[in-house]
Amino acid sequence: MNIFRLAGDMTHLASVLVLLLKIHTIKSCAGVSLKTQELYVIVFATRYLDIFTSFVSIYNSLMKLIFLGSSFSIVWYMRYHKAVHRTYDREQDTFRHWFLMLPCILLALLIHEKFTFFEVMWTFSLYLEAVAILPQLVLLQRTRNIDNLTGQYIFLLGGYRGFYILNWIYRYFTEPHYVHWITWISGLVQTLLYADFFYYYFLSWKNNKKLQLPA
């Protein structure tokens, strides 16, 4: 475990906590895409299929449980908690899950390291995670009215991806045989999707203004 990996995991954890804070204490999910959150549930459920069969460390297992539990509870809140559900921008959040999932399923069946059930599911989760933020970014663009917590949530998620890239670079130079093209390319694509958002986030931060995306 290097410092970049730890920083990435902690940023990821912080992003989930910010979102739970918004939903749990303010009882609002305004500006949050349920589609993206449901895609994350699928991402974690397909990636952590090995949670009971392969053990790396207590840290890893605990984090897997946290990410599974938090993503399920966020979706539960947005769907079934009356007060939270009322604040959901249902009409704006229209991205189709299958539009993202189907290409990822096909790609995972075609491009993978090993053709086994667990390996294809794991690869699918990488491809899906890369694009899972898209419904959220589309929703932001549509609502244009971005509150601080939602902005921070996406900023932290993007930060998590950035730290993972630094982690891969570090590991590539310090560990022999550390080469994972599928992970790297899908991770890079995922991080690039945040570039536009980051640009406007920093602009609003620099000018000390409320974050607004251009139409």
Binding site: V56, S57, E113
Partner: peptide, 10 residues
């Protein structure tokens, strides 16, 4: 086998 192939990332 490649040891670093193990999935130790989240």
């Amino acid at each position: 086998p490649n040891k670093s192939y193990e999935k130790d990332e989240l």
